[in-house]
Design a protein around this nucleic acid. Structure first.
Lengths: 217, 217
DNA sequence: GTCTATAAGCGGATAGAC
DNA sequence: GTCTATCCGCTTATAGAC
């Protein structure tokens, strides 16, 4: 039986099935045949829509990143937040009151055992987040709380180091080391941006409380 | 005809052949059969020594990193160099008077089209370089030229950002952007380490001269 | 323990018929 | 657009020689 569908729908169908399988079993453990079975199509159809299994992964990553960048843009556009708060929230990937569903997806995708997908996702995120954050820094410079001759490059350096160094899939730090690194990063953010010492200290307190479980329950 | 060899020699033989082929044709374009033909062994022998083609890749990367770390240790141990010089040379991967053969190997390995190998190599390098550089920083602190409450973490931060951000295989920057990033990194090194502004300026001059071709020829 | 030879399985990718 | 058939490369298995 041959069923023709709207190309976009078919593509989305494949992506959804693949995403489910990739997150459940991992990328390399998922075969193209698995995807075919799940969607109910033949191999030729799959390769009509995607050039390779990897291209499917790329599309999923892209879909996923778009959501994260949107969240960051929302934070950046929030007029009630100070530049320091925006910065810290975006860099730490903290979205205090965003809907919780996305967070789960991030968790899952991070744990997918696939260095390649992982790296691509980090790189794309950094590239897309850079202009957003640079704008925040320049806002901070105008407000007089930040000061640096290299706003864009500093953002890139901070993003790269926080995304890669604090990523649990790339480096495996002990919980204690992780805390130490967040402390250090806070200090480094302050110094590289020429912010007043302690600008991020109170935000850091919030971050730690969330991570270590609430003490007031 | 059967030839028995010292296991270590055999292993090295396979690694050498594989490294040559990987750098010549790329990892995925090199088949296990290619390696067998080159070394002159049977398939069973290959899989007797290595569990997979990827394991061969890992071993090559490891061999390669060990050399780089040795070079860094040599720089760190050189009593004629100041802490600032040691730091900059190691972070920029500059070995001014080391034998030039290694540099070529770096180029080649960087171009092998394999993100996973690449990432592993960077992570390993960072992990092994951290203690070496941390010692240099602490030397600098004792000498009074550096000042930071987080020497180790700052080293990690600088290594991660320089290794990943300046890596041509991960981000593809225009030459001009690349230069801008090196300038910014220099500034960031100075501020994060609490060094005097301009401490690295003269070293930076050396770096640029080398990269852009000599003007006095 | 080291090595050869061969065959077969599996998964990604392609060609070409419908 | 969709399918079936097929290829190619990594990997495993087997059986046996030195």
């Amino acid at each position: 039986m041959r069923v023709s569908k709207n190309p976009e729908d078919r593509k989305t169908e494949i992506l959804n099935a693949a995403e489910m399988l990739f997150t459940a079993k991992g990328y390399s453990e998922t075969t193209v045949n698995d995807i075919l079975r799940e969607v109910g199509i033949a191999k030729g159809t799959f390769y009509y829509y995607f050039q390779s299994k990897e291209e499917v992964m790329d599309a999923i990553v892209q879909r996923f990143i778009d959501k994260g960048v949107e969240a960051a843009k929302a934070i950046a556009a929030d007029p009630s937040l100070k530049a320091t708060e925006k910065l810290f929230q975006i860099i730490m990937g903290q979205r205090p009151d965003a809907d919780g569903q996305k967070e789960q997806m991030i968790e899952e995708l991070h744990q997918v055992n696939n260095p390649e997908m992982h790296q691509k996702s980090l790189v794309e995120t950094i590239l897309q987040l850079t202009p957003v954050l640079t704008e925040v820094i320049e806002q901070g410079i105008r407000e007089g709380v930040f000061q640096t001759p290299y706003p864009k490059e500093t953002v890139e350096f901070l993003l790269v180091s926080s995304q890669f160094l604090l990523d649990e899939g790339i480096f495996q730090w002990e919980p204690q080391e992780q805390i130490q690194k967040v402390l250090a990063l806070t200090h480094i953010i302050e110094t590289t941006l020429g912010a007043e010492r302690g600008s991020f200290a109170y935000i850091l307190g919030m971050y730690n409380n969330e991570k270590e479980g609430k003490s007031d329950e």
